[in-house]
């Protein structure tokens, strides 16, 4: 049962990508897309997903939408403005360091979401993840602190809060 649900979700993703990439929704595209989606869904049902029931919870989609809007409008803009200021400033005020930042989420998807959110904002890049110590190693263009817990507040608190609600 879980396998069929997993397969269905992966097939939906595949079908969507197929139709969007094709750029047309004639009968031919729908039929071939359906067949391709079924095959790919069966192949990847146990690889892509482990708990497909989470995908069907509307609460998670609500937080995903809220997070997407907040991330792309507020967090991205602030980070861009900060880095642009540093580039345009003739004294180039950078203070780079690699800091250790702990995280407190369980699933792989949540960890990936936090890591990608951090890397996608200019100024911070995740260079390594240590799953035993539950922490990222982050290269930070302006290391305000080297304390792991304080760095977490500066860098990843918001991302973590939303990632936990979306994926955990």
């Amino acid at each position: 049962m879980t396998k069929i649900l997993n397969m269905f979700i992966v097939a939906c993703l595949t079908f969507m990508v197929y139709i969007i990439f094709t750029g047309s929704s004639s009968v031919y595209d729908l039929v071939t897309g359906f067949i391709v989606a079924l095959i790919v869904g069966a192949l990847f049902s146990n690889i892509t997903l482990s708990n497909a029931l989470k995908v069907l919870e509307p609460r998670r989609w609500y937080y995903l939408l809220r997070y997407a809007i907040r991330y792309f409008i507020i967090d991205e803009t602030l980070a861009h403005v900060d880095v642009i200021k540093r580039i345009l400033n003739p004294r180039m005020p950078v203070n780079p360091a690699i800091v250790k930042v702990p995280y407190n989420v369980e699933t792989d998807y949540a960890k990936t979401c936090i890591a990608c959110s951090i890397t996608n904002t200019p100024g911070t890049v995740v260079v390594e993840i240590d799953e035993n110590e539950k922490s990222f190693y982050i290269h930070w263009i302006d290391a305000k602190t080297l304390e792991p817990e304080k760095a977490r507040e500066y860098i990843s608190m918001v991302f973590e809060k939303y990632s936990r609600k979306i994926f955990d």
């Binding site: 993703l13 790919v40 990847f44 690889i47 892509t48």
Partner: peptide, 14 residues
Amino acid sequence: TKITSPMIIAVGAS
């Protein structure tokens, strides 16, 4: 990789 692999195959099939 787990997410993008099915998408790569969908694009290839298309």
